[in-house]
């Protein structure tokens, strides 16, 4: 049985194709302005890679913020459920998932079987999401991929305590004017993002293994700050972006 999971987020769309408990193929593209088109396109790309076509798929589950607009999906399941399942497949010892995306962040308690025990999410406020890092990168004139490595070179991270992204921008500008080094400011930004999420996740609680997923998971600076914040080591799956779609594809195999 071959199944697929389609995860349409605000920034990127992902499809993963699974058969016999193994990943056959996957694709990632920017969502653009049409959820429906992005879902078709990315699924097409994944099918091409696996040398399959749509009728070969027994069951398709959609997830993510655009999940209800994927016409060819058989069922829509929330990204929290899918993330838990996906992480459980990649790292069976996972018990806590920290997911930080472009627009939101979540902390998920995962059981041994990949089901969710508890969760908390923030989708109201940019602080504590990838957006925060993007805004700051622009102000500092850095590429987003440079941010993490630079932050790790800091010896004395700044304390950025504004709760609001907009105001943090101002705070950062004045830190620069005060002569603080670039790496200290960047490290401070990473600490700020991490601490927002860490505090939010306390109601769920952190149990090992703690796994970090989502677009921001590629940022080692945030990973480091999270580890400091929760006092536990953090694992990152090889392709953190596709975890949701993978989970959706795996859940689809249960549908017979």
């Amino acid at each position: 049985m071959i199944t697929a999971g389609v995860d349409v987020g605000a920034a990127t769309a992902k499809t993963v194709i699974v058969a016999d408990g193994k990943i056959l193929s996957y694709a990632v593209i920017p969502t653009g302005d049409s959820v429906a088109r992005a879902a078709e396109k990315v699924t097409g790309a994944a099918l091409d890679q696996a040398r399959l076509s749509m009728p070969d798929l027994s069951f398709i589950i959609s997830t993510g913020y655009g999940r209800n607009a994927v016409a060819f999906a058989h069922k829509a399941v929330t990204e929290i459920i899918c993330h838990a399942k996906g992480v459980n497949f990649l790292i069976p010892a996972a018990r806590t998932v920290i997911d930080i995306g472009g627009q939101d962040s979540k902390v998920i308690g995962v059981r041994e079987d990949g089901t969710v025990s508890d969760f908390v999410m923030n989708d109201k406020c940019a602080a504590g999401t990838g957006r925060f890092l993007e805004v700051m990168a622009v102000v500092l004139g850095l590429g987003i991929e440079e941010m993490g490595p630079i932050s790790l070179t800091s010896k004395e991270p700044c304390n950025i305590s504004s709760t609001c992204t907009i105001f943090a921008e101002t705070e950062m500008v004045s830190l620069r004017a005060d002569g603080r080094t670039r790496e200290d400011i960047v490290a401070g930004i990473h600490r700020a993002v991490a601490s927002r999420v860490v505090v939010m996740g306390r109601t769920v609680g952190y149990k090992q293994q703690v796994v970090f997923t989502g677009g921001v998971a590629k940022n080692l600076g945030v990973k480091h700050s999270l580890e400091v914040g929760i006092g536990l080591p953090i694992l990152i799956p090889e392709e953190p972006q596709i975890v949701g779609a993978l989970g959706a594809a795996l859940l689809a195999t249960r549908q017979t």
């Binding site: 305590s161 504004s162 709760t163 105001f167 943090a168 101002t170 705070e171 004045s174």
Partner: peptide, 9 residues
């Protein structure tokens, strides 16, 4: 005030 640093200015 909400005791926030960004309020100073």
């Amino acid at each position: 005030s909400d005791y926030d640093v960004s309020e100073r200015g």
